[in-house]
Nucleic acid binder design. Structure first.
Lengths: 337, 337
DNA sequence: TTGTACGCGTTATCAA
DNA sequence: TTGATAACGCGTACAA
């Protein structure tokens, strides 16, 4: 059916070797005449080498796997875009896998990715479990990079941000405005990520000589609904400001505050985390901790590919520093105006 | 390095053929004893067949390509999630390709997808060009499905919504509230999609015996900024309500209205299109035309795979009907209260 | 400068 | 009930 290297060789009246060399630019020793002849035939018949056959012999597929919880989450989508761009620019393709943070799905995907001989894997998950597989792959020398979280293992490639600093920046912004009753809606407190953001929160409080108050903490799950629930509780607890550990939950805070007939930022100040592009569109625009999301995607693909190609890596783990995108969701507390 | 079918055969003391048959469940003629023996060895050595080698002989890769403009766009991400879920549940993987609507990138991706022998392609684009490649693939019998738009070609698989109806629903909702000066911010009026939504708008006006007024039309580009610009113009033109052809532009309308110190819905009513999750969180929550985005993704993967497997397709083109998510952004016009 | 021949890891045909 | 063996399409020593 489809045209093969053999066909091209025949049509051009040369050997398979010659065609192969020309395709792979290993044609120093081929005469211009032959090369042109072959190139012309290739073009004429619109010949594209089979990556399957090539992969079988070279052990390279120029394909990487991308495991993430859910591409319909704006934050992961942004990361994914970075990964794909980074991969594409090095000539790699990306197989997308939505795991829903389910260890079983992760293992299934890992298995098919192995069978398809991907050259490497970018792994994102918010859950704790299943690090075993990743560790095992890595220890076998299989290229793996963990994105958006730091494994304890120092020998596993990783790209992540300083979450403590993020929580600190958000909370400090609030204390600087004079807030003292600052609520915090955290993510699930098992994985480190949420714990670290909470740590940053505590650090900022301490610096401002504000006592930590358990009543002002609400453990959410990074989803909008839990932000809404958290806000209701924290409002009752007397919070004048809320730090939500991600923007999705901050949206929930907006909803709850509006439902209560209150106003942001005059009745209550809000800071988010992630700085999704939508946050700018809200009214008032949400002040949020910004991660260089897209860039982190790009860099992780680039690092992974370096590892694949056995090129030297300056560092195995790169930590980004978050910044604060200051907008209009924070004001002085009502009682101080 | 990695373990092959040959190794398994040796360890189990049987032939390669036997192992292959067992793996592929074509083992009616294999004794239970041998089967168990082989299965045990496979398990013990954690053997996973190489999809490359298999693909080379079966001509099937169980992989499909997904071409879309930009995964970081929430709407495409939702579609992509559907496509991946639909594919995964049939045992297929998805190669993600961000084209930015650039015909050149589209062609590059198409080319590598061919070389990697994907079994089929899901194609999304908002631009006009480059249908040629898709048509050619389709005419060659290669499985292709177009998502989120209808090609004129009736023989190309397609999944899309009734955009005329969407525009109609949005506008009718506004006329029913008594609005007469209804502005419309359209998308780029070259591709059909935006034209059809505008058609729906016109249809609803006609039904309500309202004359079409060119002054109340603004051609946007589906981005927030153009919604803002459009709103400013339409406000000046005396509109009491605005239909924005997508939610991103509706967000721009919100911004412009707030900047003018006006209120939604009391001073001006707004209806959007797409019903992105964020629209519910805005204040007031945005009334918007809803497409079954995720479902469309699933169904398109399912259809594509049916085509790949040469199974019968009930219909080549499936058109979904949009619905209206009624929320709080529409009220009676101020002069009628 | 070019060609022969083998191997990559499978499936499938046919024979035993 | 099982096993040899020829493909599949390509890269690459090695030979010419």
């Amino acid at each position: 059916m489809s045209i093969t290297i053999k066909d091209i060789a025949e049509k051009a009246g040369v050997s398979i070797t010659t065609v192969s060399k020309i395709i792979n630019k290993k044609d120093d020793d081929i005469s211009d005449k032959t090369r042109n002849k072959v190139l012309k035939v290739i073009d004429e018949y619109n010949y594209i080498p089979s990556a399957l056959a090539t992969g079988l012999v070279t052990k390279k597929t120029n394909t990487i796997g991308l495991l993430l919880p859910d591409i319909s989450n704006a934050f992961f989508a942004e990361l994914a875009r970075g990964v794909e761009d980074g991969a594409n620019c090095e000539g790699y393709n990306v197989i997308l896998c939505n795991t829903d943070d389910d260890p079983e799905k992760e293992n299934q995907y890992l298995s098919v990715l192995k069978s398809k001989h991907v050259d490497g894997i970018v792994f994102l998950s918010t859950a704790l479990s299943n690090h075993g597989e990743i560790r095992e792959l890595n220890s076998k020398g299989f290229p793996v990079i963990v994105l958006d979280r730091a494994f304890d293992d120092e020998d596993i490639l990783a790209v992540f941000i300083d979450n403590v600093m993020g929580g600190y920046l958000a909370t400090k912004h609030l204390t600087e405005f004079g807030h003292e009753a600052i609520g915090c809606i955290t993510g699930p407190l098992k994985p480190k990520l949420a714990i670290q953001r909470l740590e940053g929160y505590k650090k900022a409080l301490k610096e401002a000589h504000i006592d930590f108050n358990e009543e002002l903490i609400y453990e959410g799950n990074f989803k909008t609904k839990s932000g809404e629930l958290g806000a209701k509780k924290l409002l009752k607890a007397g919070a004048t400001a809320i730090f939500a550990s991600n923007d999705m939950m901050a949206y929930g805070v907006y909803k709850a505050v509006h439902d209560e007939g209150l106003s942001i930022p005059y009745d209550i100040s809000v800071v988010g985390f992630d700085d999704i592009f939508l946050s700018e569109i809200l009214s008032p625009p949400l002040t949020s901790v910004k991660q260089p999301t897209y860039e982190m995607g790009i860099i992780s693909a680039a690092m992974l590919i370096k590892k694949i190609k056995n090129e030297e890596l300056k560092q195995l783990r790169v930590e980004y520093k978050p910044t604060l995108s200051v907008r209009k969701s924070v004001a002085f507390p009502a009682d101080k105006v």
